[in-house]
Design a protein around this nucleic acid. Structure first.
Length: 740
DNA sequence: CCAAGGTGTCATACG
DNA sequence: CGCGTATGACACCTT
């Protein structure tokens, strides 16, 4: 049941995060402009929250006070978390910088429109982020070093060892004040009975350790205060370290595809001019695209690949055995035309490509020989580039291509466009620059790993640790009203004989610094150390909200006369503020051992400890409450820690998935680029071959009447265009049927 | 003043 | 039943 519950909770968390992620995916604009805001919200929130907790923890360990027995566990946890965050931060901050530099380098020669500005800004941000990364690290190190003698502080006498001090009148007053705090302790009736109290007061006077205890605590408070000031200077530094990485602006930086040629009508295949033949190619491309999407790296050996695989500039004359003047009738077979170069190129994808029995016998290559020998012409590049970089390309491509020219790649690209993963995302995330295809390919080999987790991750903007540093200087008056909050249990309805005093005023009178309350807010100790270390009983922060206003006991506050006393009183008062309510209660109830022991001792030892002392019922009740609350407090902390851990793990998973997605997108683009290049080669080869063919009369074949067709065995056939159209139609239906 | 996050505490459930 | 733990809910504080 428990596991099921946990599973359900985590599942909900996962679902939430994934929903956010999906939602962002859907909304491209949002994604581009705000870097996955929902996900960022989810991730950054916990991250910063976590870091804030960490800073609390760090600061708490610095003061030397109240090292909680579970500190090791949580410190390990936080340390691991911090290291992980730093590692992530390194990844985030460095990689974007690299990317930005690359963009700048590549972009400037391009002279692209608006890329420089966002890039520069990004670089600035990232550099600052790098600086910021070192911030928490230093702070942590310093804090860790100081943790050493902070433990020493524990030895200063957590149980208020007698200092042998002189008990002044003020001290006695303070003791009396503490006595009156018993009202708030929820103790038994006898506690509040005057005679009972007086009796205990007498005992207290005999012991006369209350004031000494105060002195001791006050001295420690001074030390802690000084230490805190020092620490504050070290760790209080805040580093916003917000790395906006508004990569969306890079969108504009995507340069146009310079190699996109102008489409010449003369190069268009006569088959292409037909109404149906383009579907053939389009369908094949769609198939290829779907295959590529399903299989990231593996290139399916489809007919289209064969079609568009071409030797890299092999002269056709050397590969084709067909003599230019060979008489060719209809359906003249070009079996001898092996297109050896093509087979070589196939190895680019898969060795089995050649042997694949493609249905290419009916596949038509919608290329036409033309008078133009321009090898630059690519019928697909325009659209491809237009898909990737429409803004830059439209100016050149659309002018020449014209609407009357159905581009075989159009459908394919549309499909790709409709793909849930948009290539714009790729361009944004990966800074893909089609102009530098070759460079990019090299990059894929060289630093693809570096660019994998670049700036696409919304969490990369986090710098969570730095952003939350400011919180360490906070928590000001958390304990300010602590001393007045003793009425939580049972004593709420009790009306003290003293006037309710405004604690804030009292604090102000003694020059209380809110920051000092930070010391004892969260502290962790290793339970294993419990039995061998004397502690100060500072378990937690001070909350006064549970206290009923009527229960505010002036006894908690030093009399006005005490406010003007020496630093000893100030320190005592300061330490009072630092103590948690339970600590105050314990002190007021003369609990002879620390709250840490009460909370963290095993049951046996705890009972043993209780048996050693003669405790009143009220004391025992308070002790049990302290133990219960303390344990529950730690449990709550652990619970929250687990929550954060779960969220952070999910964040990591999301980042990994995003990395994978980006990688797949890069690969997809790479394949598209390769296909485009091969298409260009095939087109040029087609033109060359077709241009060399001569009929019986030695005249060249008309591109409008004949077309070359590749057979499945690698042969090339010259067939009439009518036949080619028919075969194209048949070929077109096949994939559709297959889809059904 | 509000929102968000942190924290302690309580109530409750579970082992 | 007692104890410890986990967790939702709440209140309060801080920023």
């Amino acid at each position: 049941m428990l596991s099921l519950k946990k599973y359900l909770t985590e599942g909900l968390l996962q679902f939430t995060i994934l929903l956010s992620l999906i939602g962002v995916r859907v909304d491209v604009d949002t994604y581009l402009t705000s870097q996955l805001p929902p996900l960022r919200e989810i991730i950054l929130g916990p991250s910063s929250a976590y870091t804030q907790t960490q800073f609390h923890n760090l600061r708490n360990t610095l003061d030397g006070y109240g090292i909680h027995p579970k500190s090791i566990d949580l410190d390990n946890y936080f340390t691991a978390r911090r290291l992980l965050s730093q590692v992530r931060a390194l990844d985030r901050f460095q990689v974007p910088t690299t990317e930005v530099n690359a963009w700048l380098v590549h972009r400037d020669p391009e002279g692209s429109v608006s890329g420089s500005q966002p890039n520069s800004g990004l670089a600035l941000e990232s550099s600052s982020g790098l600086q910021d990364v070192t911030g928490p690290d230093n702070g942590v190190r310093e804090s860790e070093t100081e943790q050493g003698f902070s433990e020493d502080l524990e030895d200063l006498g957590a149980v208020a060892p007698p200092v042998g001090g002189d008990l002044t009148k003020e001290d006695i007053d303070l003791i009396d004040i503490l006595w009156r705090q018993d009202i708030d302790l929820g103790a038994g009736r006898e506690v509040f009975d005057y005679s009972h109290r007086q009796k205990e007061q007498d005992v207290d006077k005999e012991l006369q350790d209350g004031g000494e205890r105060e002195d001791t605590w006050a001295g420690e408070g001074a030390e802690a205060l000084a230490r805190d000031l020092l620490v504050d200077g070290e760790t209080g530094e805040s580093f916003p370290a917000q790395f906006p990485a508004d990569v969306s602006s890079i969108t504009e930086a995507v340069p146009s595809e310079s190699e996109s040629p102008t489409l010449q009508n003369s190069l268009l295949s006569p088959l292409l001019t037909g109404t149906e033949s383009p579907f053939d190619l389009e369908q094949q491309w769609q198939d290829l695209m779907s295959i590529m999407e399903m299989q990231a790296m593996e290139v399916n050996t489809s007919a289209s690949e064969i079609l568009y695989s071409a030797p890299p500039g092999d002269p056709l004359s050397t590969n084709y055995s067909l003599a230019p003047n060979t008489p060719i009738n209809q359906n003249v077979s070009l079996h001898q035309a092996s297109l050896g170069g093509c087979s070589q190129d196939f190895s680019l994808f898969s060795p089995e490509v050649e042997s694949l029995p493609v249905a290419s016998s009916s596949t038509l290559l919608p290329l036409v020989p033309s008078n133009s020998t321009s090898l630059n012409s690519t019928f697909g590049s325009t659209n491809l580039a237009g898909l990737f970089f429409p803004s830059q390309l439209n100016g050149t491509a659309n002018d020449t291509s014209g609407p009357e020219l159905p581009d075989p790649l159009g459908g394919l690209l549309d499909e790709a466009m409709l793909d849930e993963i948009s290539l714009m995302d790729l361009a944004i995330e990966e800074g893909f620059n089609p102009v530098q295809a070759s460079q990019l390919e090299e990059e894929f080999d060289s630093d693809s790993g570096l660019s994998l987790d670049s700036s696409h991750s919304p969490s990369s903007l986090s710098s969570s640790e730095g952003s939350s540093s400011s919180s360490s200087s906070s928590s000001s008056s958390a304990s300010s009203s602590a001393s007045s909050s003793f009425s939580e249990e049972g004593a709420v309805g009790y009306s003290s004989d003293s006037e309710t005093l405004d604690l804030e005023e009292a604090e102000g009178a003694v020059g209380y610094q809110p920051e000092y309350s930070k010391f004892c807010r969260m502290s962790y100790q290793d339970p294993s150390q419990l039995s061998c270390l004397p502690y100060l009983e500072h378990v937690g922060h001070n909350h006064t909200y549970n206290m009923a206003p009527s229960a505010l006991d002036s006894a908690d506050l030093p009399p006005p006369s005490t406010l003007k006393k020496g630093s000893k009183e100030k320190q005592a008062d300061f330490l009072d503020k630092q103590m948690s309510r339970d600590e105050h209660r314990a002190r007021a109830m003369k609990i002879p051992f620390t709250n840490d022991k009460i909370i963290n001792l095993p049951v046996e030892e705890f009972n043993e400890l209780l048996s050693k002392y003669q405790l009143s019922e009220a004391q025992l009740s308070l002790i049990r409450d302290i133990r219960r609350r303390g344990k529950n407090k730690m449990a709550a902390q652990n619970c929250r820690k687990r929550k954060l851990d779960t969220i952070l793990n999910l964040e990591r998973d999301v980042e990994d998935l995003q990395r994978d997605k980006a990688r797949l997108l890069r690969e997809k683009v790479e394949f598209l680029r390769s296909l485009r290049q091969m298409k260009q080669k095939v087109q040029s080869l087609y033109q060359e071959v077709f241009g060399r063919l001569r009929d019986e009369n030695g005249r060249p074949y008309s591109p409008s009447q004949y077309a070359l067709q590749y057979a499945g065995d690698g042969s090339v056939l010259l067939i009439p265009r009518t036949m080619a159209d028919q075969q194209a139609r048949r070929q077109e239906r096949k994939p559709k049927d297959r889809r059904k």
